[in-house]
Design a protein around this nucleic acid. Structure first.
Lengths: 152, 152
DNA sequence: GTTTATGCAAAGGCTTTGCATTTCA
DNA sequence: TGAAATGCAAAGCCTTTGCATAAAC
């Protein structure tokens, strides 16, 4: 399998993280990392499980959950809870910070960026002495397509 | 039971909503609304269930879930998903818009306000033709108290 | 050789659902 | 009286856990 520059880079980050924390460098963990970085967009555990199964690299759901925790710890993955019950994930390294717009009619999730969010983070940090690690801004409503459909 | 001005107000909103949508005005629904507005802060279904039981006004969990959906529909309640599995709720009427700062160490949730979030909402609305209904901004990290503890 | 990770299946927790009973309109 | 809401218990779904097996170190 040909690896991109980026894949090498995230693999190194993960490897360093595992070593520094006394975790083992198992093939499953790197296979999962690779699969996560092979796609853009959001996924849940079930979808990731299906993808790996299809590629004949099946790992247990338990291992997927465990590995997600590790990847979140070292900031290679972000975890989201939108409206539904399950957790959604996305790769996080080298992707500029962004937030999410969720259509409550069709369930579609879009992304957007706004620099003001960084200012808000700084404010909270200063005002409360809070050490900010991450944030999630979810804007809910109805997307343009669903508005149009509804009017017909 | 003495009712505040506000309780009358939210009850009227709920009553109107139920009538306009052909839902029945059951005593359970109004008892739940009243209990929700009797406390500030966040609560989950189990806590609400416990409170009502203690006051000898027990309703089933199923009815609590159903009624929460109605109250969310008419903007009298907001629902949140923080980090844990269950949903958290809070009363929403006549309380100024605010967002949440979550300490991932102790789990404590604080509130803050920032007018820039409204500007971001407007931007998204204009840029994407998205009809914004609500938003949730969660800032995660470590609170001042937990930082202090950790340093000792 | 130890100790940690994996995989499987079972258990857990929150939420939804089905159905009989009650109650609002 | 008829349709909708309630309550209870069971089922569902996602996630975590326990334990035997396998594999890093």
């Amino acid at each position: 399998m040909q690896m991109t520059e980026q894949q090498h880079s995230v693999e190194r980050i993960f490897r360093d993280y595992l070593e520094q924390h006394g975790h083992r460098k198992t093939p499953e963990r790197f296979a999962i990392l690779s699969e996560v970085y092979a796609h853009e967009g959001h996924f849940d555990i079930e979808r990731l499980y299906g993808r790996m199964k299809k590629k004949n690299y099946q790992v247990s759901r338990a291992t997927l959950y465990n590995t997600m925790d590790l990847l979140i710890e070292c900031d290679l993955v972000r975890k989201h809870r939108f409206n539904d019950t399950q957790s959604w994930f996305e790769r996080a390294h080298a992707y500029r910070q962004h937030d999410h717009v969720i259509c409550d009619v069709c369930g579609n999730v879009a992304e957007f960026c706004d620099p003001r969010i960084q200012q808000i983070r700084n404010n909270v940090s200063e005002a409360l002495g809070f050490r900010v690690r991450s944030h999630a801004l979810h804007i809910h409503g109805t997307c343009a397509a669903c508005q149009a459909k509804r009017e017909n």
